[in-house]
Deep mutational scan, measured.
Amino acid sequence: MEVRTIKVFTTVDNINLHTQVVDMSMTYGQQFGPTYLDGADVTKIKPHNSHEGKTFYVLPNDDTLRVEAFEYYHTTDPSFLGRYMSALNHTKKWKYPQVNGLTSIKWADNNCYLATALLTLQQIELKFNPPALQDAYYRARAGEAANFCALILAYCNKTVGELGDVRETMSYLFQHANLDSCKRVLNVVCKTCGQQQTTLKGVEAVMYMGTLSYEQFKKGVQIPCTCGKQATKYLVQQESPFVMMSAPPAQYELKHGTFTCASEYTGNYQCGHYKHITSKETLYCIDGALLTKSSEYKGPITDVFYKENSYTTTIK
């Protein structure tokens, strides 16, 4: 009895394709271990004539594949690729409408935090270190965002349907971005203890939790000093293409032309909904596939993004 075979390709990165001759009487799992086709788990399936010449994702289970996976995804987590594939199996079914010149995501599976993050990423200057993220990001900007969303979920250790947080998501993504040249110098002034300067680099240099107003941050924000008295913390120097200011959701007025974009969060910790506000020729609110415009805006804002380049204080 002759062994019926077909020729397929296996890959971990969709760049390096490895030619395989597979036995049609055995499952993919018996031949390769966990195997995925377009995100779908085909591990328990036997090869079919229609699979001839198709590319299958496999887990990096030998040295060659491990090197290829690390170079593309910059992670050695053995569960990463499987999590990416199972997320992709959902995100490829989502709709990605162009809204006001940006790629958004039609609401499904509690994905409003991903839509808000995706919209924000198209408006701030950011370059990702893992080629996987950078490639998928370019495709997302062009309207094909399924891979990018699935990668975000995998890097953030999230599953489809789980509630997510924009600030946490951005923080994970910033860790995989090139923020080497970003720098922030802060000064804390206390009447009792004097003053202390701190220099922050990388992710810490672009994120701040405690106030939404970048102007206020430049002037000074009140913080408790270690001595128990009130101290003032203010920005001395900022070198970065953008800054992200966050605070627990509270009524906040966004003035046209003073910011790049913002995240609105309605609801409580267990259950809520994100919308995205962007400042173009007027203010726009993007909620999944829905767009509304207004000249002014007041609502429960939790993150505001500002364009920056270089700032030095005039406070002496």
Rank of each mutant, 00 (worst) to 15 (best):
E2S: 09
V3F: 12
R4M: 12
K7L: 11
V8A: 12
F9V: 11
T10D: 07
T10E: 01
V12C: 10
N14M: 13
V21M: 14
V21F: 14
V21E: 14
G29E: 11
F32Q: 10
G33M: 04
Y36T: 07
T43Q: 13
T43R: 10
T43L: 07
T55G: 08
Y57I: 11
V58M: 08
V58A: 03
N61R: 12
D62G: 10
R66L: 12
V67E: 14
A69R: 10
F70A: 14
H74F: 03
T75S: 14
D77Q: 03
Y84V: 06
L88K: 06
Q98W: 10
L102P: 03
T103L: 04
K106V: 15
A108Q: 08
N110F: 07
A117M: 06
I124T: 07
E125H: 06
N129G: 06
P131F: 02
A132F: 02
L133E: 01
Q134N: 09
Q134S: 09
A136E: 12
A140Q: 02
E144S: 12
A145H: 01
A145G: 10
A146F: 04
F148I: 06
C149D: 02
T159W: 05
V160W: 05
V166Q: 03
R167V: 03
M170H: 01
M170V: 06
Y172C: 14
H176K: 06
S181R: 13
V189G: 06
C193A: 03
C193E: 00
Q197K: 14
Q197F: 08
T199K: 10
L200S: 07
V203R: 10
L212F: 02
L212R: 02
Y214F: 06
Y214D: 02
E215L: 03
Q216M: 08
Q216W: 00
F217D: 01
G220N: 00
V221D: 02
I223R: 01
I223D: 06
I223T: 12
G228F: 00
Q230W: 12
V236A: 09
S240H: 11
F242E: 09
M245Y: 09
E253L: 08
A262D: 00
E264V: 15
Q270L: 11
G288M: 09
L290N: 14
Y297N: 06
D303M: 01
D303W: 02
V304T: 01
K307I: 08
T313K: 15
